[in-house]
Amino acid sequence: MSDKTRLQFDYRLKGLMKLFTLFAVLTLFIIFIGVVFKSYPILKTNSIFHFLFSSEWFPQKEKFGLFPFIVSTLWVTAIAMVLAVPFCILASIYLSEYADKKIIGWITPLIDILAGIPSVIFGIWGIIVVVPFVRDYLAPFFGKVSTGYSLITGGIVLSVMIVPVMVNILLEVFATVSKGLKEASLSLGATKWQTIKNVLLRKAAPGIVSAIALSLSRAFGETLAVLMVVGNVTKVPHSMLDPGQPLPALIANNYGEMMSIDLYDSALLLASLVLFIIVLIFNIASRLILRKMERNLG
């Protein structure tokens, strides 16, 4: 091959890669524009704040308040994060700092398998195990009656689903903290835990924030497994033992069965838009926190 054809090939290949990259980013905008466009009809009838804070969801009467679903989404995600974050951080510390290579060789593939389990299987596990647990033990413990299909059930199932994602990222993050830095702390007479607390976690803090942010996006969007155990009741939940219906469940449960109610379709896309915006807000917030942390650490 002549130099000219080789260089031309190189040039064209680069162009192709650029195109694909652009396309990937473009999809984001296409989806966003599509969702905005489709939810426009309902936004013409009332302000977005009306839909965000109204609790009335009666599609037959063309009332589309999203408040119950937003509250459910936040509950389920918050429960999942509260359960998963400390669990994952401690498990990752154990794997990266204490466990010997043999144990790591056993555990990390298992965690990867957990990541590959289809959502629907988590849902079934939730119905078979978590629902009865909540109904027979957790609810009575708090002196309440529950069918077991509740926000906390969704939160528990979701937290287990987040674990592999978060542990994998955290392990990567902890691996970036150099051995020399930890040895510097140890050589001053610090115990292992003092070193972990003051050096490892501090150095890894921005990475931990990223790990939480990524898991959070995953948690907000997870649909099927949560939908199977959360009860799907359209009501503003007052405790985590109440059933609820998060936004993704609302959309998945109803899209395609909108009968011939005019604005139903638009209302569900508004729900998508709200979900989109919630994820966006948390993403931006985590980026701001990250930037601040990196500035402080120098």
């Binding site: 020399g180 830095l181 040895e183 702390s185 050589s187 001053l188 007479g189 050096v199 501090r202 150095k203």
Partner: peptide, 14 residues
């Protein structure tokens, strides 16, 4: 605690 260590490259704590 009895041994101060200076390593190959400096590792300032974060």
């Amino acid at each position: 605690k009895k041994m101060g260590l200076l390593s190959q490259r400096p590792y300032p704590l974060p």
